[in-house]
Amino acid sequence: MLRIGLFLLTNLAIMIVAGVVINLLGVGKFISHGQLNLQSLFIFCAVFGFTGSFISLFISKWMAKRSMGVELIENPRNADERWLVDTVAELAQKAGIKMPEVGVFPAEESNAFATGWNRNDALVAVSLGLLQRFERDEVRAVLAHEIGHVANGDMVTLSLIQGIVNTFVMFFARIVGFAIDKALQGGRDNESSGPGIGYYVGSFVAEIIFGILASMIVAAFSRYREYRADEAGAHLADRNAMIRALQRLQLESGQTSMPASMQAFGIAGGMGRLFASHPPLEERIQALRNGHNNPDSLRQSLS
């Protein structure tokens, strides 16, 4: 229920903010006198596309803490928590970013994630299951992987990519819907009323189709960023430990209950490789092994 409530709250915020911006820009009406104003339509779609993406980015830490039940370690209560905070601080300094917030979430699955709206205001969290079953050098490698995501600016970059694809999905879907509506009307300009049912149905179906195609683009970029974060983890911590951490994941269940947007270290879901946000573990391990003798890996990964 909490996740549903947060989802509804986020979408309400998107609708309010986008509605205000659209009214201020005066682009809410992009079909007039039977004609489609492409400029107004594109601005309309961009406002909605980027508003959703950036609101989600700006509240990502807040959402993560509540939806995942993250307990922040502000004052370490024991040696394990002190080690966790000190390790994140060391890795963050090595990567050239400010100290992220550090937290633990109650999950049996071995997983971790990083989130936050910029590289100097981030959250790094690990599951209790990972802390209990992984060796310390492996946990350190996982933390380095997450720090790599933060240092590479992956959260912001993925939000930009998502905003772009959202914009073009909405834009082309509405063009298709308008064309279908015109075809159903026999090409006549209907100046007395707004678009017909063909526009709404056509736009809806086209948006689903284009959305599926766009999700492949976002997923492909996400997989690329995972390789970079693995390489960052290998250099900030230890390459062999990074490999062992991935190998340990292979021995455990691949499914997690974590939202896809927060599965920064986990195994990809079962929707097929084109839609997977993470590469197969065996390919990630092989990539780390192949990059062992690459002296420029760290510079490229954290650039």
Rank of each mutant, 00 (worst) to 15 (best):
N11G: 11
T51I: 10
T115S: 07
L160E: 03
L281E: 05
V104Q: 07
H149R: 07
G196L: 08
N37Q: 05
W62C: 10
G103K: 01
V17D: 01
I217R: 01
S192E: 15
D296H: 13
I31N: 09
F134K: 07
E231V: 11
L36M: 11
I97L: 04
D137C: 12
A107Q: 15
R225N: 00
A122T: 01
P106M: 06
Q247G: 11
F105E: 08
A220Q: 11
I59R: 09
L236S: 08
R77Y: 03
L288S: 02
W117G: 12
M242C: 09
E108C: 10
G186E: 08
G148I: 01
A114L: 03
L143A: 06
T10G: 15
F168V: 04
V156N: 09
P76M: 03
L9P: 00
A229F: 00
V47Y: 06
A95F: 06
G233Q: 10
V126F: 11
A89L: 08
A234D: 02
V102S: 00
P195Y: 07
Q132F: 03
L12K: 04
E71K: 15
V169R: 02
Q263A: 15
M68H: 10
E109P: 03
L84F: 04
G266F: 01
G52M: 10
L249T: 10
L131A: 05
G177V: 03
T51M: 07
E191K: 15
E283K: 15
W117C: 14
I4F: 14
D86S: 13
G5Q: 10
A219C: 02
G52F: 08
N152G: 15
K65N: 13
S159D: 04
A276S: 12
K98P: 04
S159E: 06
R136W: 12
E109S: 13
F105W: 11
I161N: 09
W62Q: 13
R299N: 15
K29S: 15
A287Q: 08
V20T: 12
L2E: 10
L38H: 12
N240E: 14
F7H: 08
P195K: 10
G177C: 00
G194V: 12
V142L: 05
L9G: 14
F30W: 13
